[in-house]
């Protein structure tokens, strides 16, 4: 009887520990899924952003853009970016359909020509408007776009964070991996370090000035991307977030591109 009890104890003990042990890959995926869950349900939002590009010599150039984003069920978000400044490109609009897998769809409206041009989206790795943000950085991050691996927990900027790596599934991605610092309380992305196709450190994204909207969603007020290889940087400042404006799909199609102002 005693032997049996010992055996039972050992069996239960091992079973329990086996049941709670997660591989780092599973843990990473779980974190990403939780993050995605917390981000869902906002329906739509509008915001305006100022993007300042700086080169190694300190020379600057800035652009003002208004942004509308629509959440799409079971797929990536749709977004419409309207350029306000510089004056020569005012009224130019970029329509972007993100897809969970495969290439995104993009269209650009040129008001001077009154024509909509489809853009080749094999260029997701290309830079957005000459900035250090690639298209694949700013389009909505869906869980299926990466595979994951949790690395460690760490304190960063006074907040306890998950540090995990994610590996793009997109074949033509400009990155081999990204290392993400996600705070454990609110699942805000505080920092991402990007590694290029040679697996050398390429860029670092720092997000700050987070505000909570609708009592649930945390959005950054400031995004700073620095390219360590070229010395160039881009600073994006977001303002006037407005949620649940009642936007619908028909506000995000080619004809709505032309009507935009």
């Amino acid at each position: 009887m005693k032997n049996f009890l010992y055996f039972l104890f050992i069996a239960v003990f091992f079973n329990v520990s086996l049941a709670t042990a997660e591989t780092p890959e599973e843990k990473g995926l779980a974190i990403a899924q939780e993050d995605d869950k917390r981000d869902n349900g906002f329906q739509d939002f509008t915001a305006s952003m100022v993007m300042v590009l700086k080169n190694r010599q300190g020379e600057e150039s800035s652009r003002n853009i208004r942004n509308k984003t629509l959440e799409v069920e079971n797929d990536g978000d749709k977004s419409l970016s309207i350029f306000e400044r510089p004056r020569d490109v005012k009224g130019t609009a970029l329509l972007n359909f993100t897809h969970k897998t495969g290439t995104d769809d993009q269209w650009l409206y040129l008001p001077a020509l009154k024509r909509v041009k489809r853009i080749s989206s094999a260029n997701k790795s290309g830079s957005f408007m000459g900035s250090e943000f690639a298209f694949e950085d700013i389009t909505s991050q869906e869980v299926e776009k990466y595979t994951y691996k949790w690395i460690r927990d760490e304190e960063y900027q006074g907040e306890k964070c998950f540090v995990f790596e994610r590996y793009p599934t997109y074949k033509n991605s400009g990155y081999t991996r990204q290392v993400v610092w996600l705070d454990q309380k609110d699942y805000k992305i505080l920092q991402i370090k990007f590694h290029d196709r040679k697996d050398s450190p390429l860029k670092t994204l720092t997000q700050s000035n987070f505000k909570q909207y609708l009592g649930k969603y945390w959005y950054p007020g400031t995004m700073y991307m620095e390219n360590h290889q070229t010395g160039k940087s881009t600073l994006i400042t977001w303002k006037n977030y407005k949620f649940q404006n009642g936007l619908r799909s028909k506000d995000f199609n080619k004809s709505s591109l032309k009507r935009v102002r």
Binding site: D88, V89, L108, L110, N123, S125, G130, N172, G174
Partner: peptide, 14 residues
């Protein structure tokens, strides 16, 4: 011209 430049910029690869 400015909008053509924008289009060109948006189409450049990695």
């Amino acid at each position: 011209s400015a909008q053509y430049l924008l289009l060109y910029e948006l189409s450049l690869p990695f």
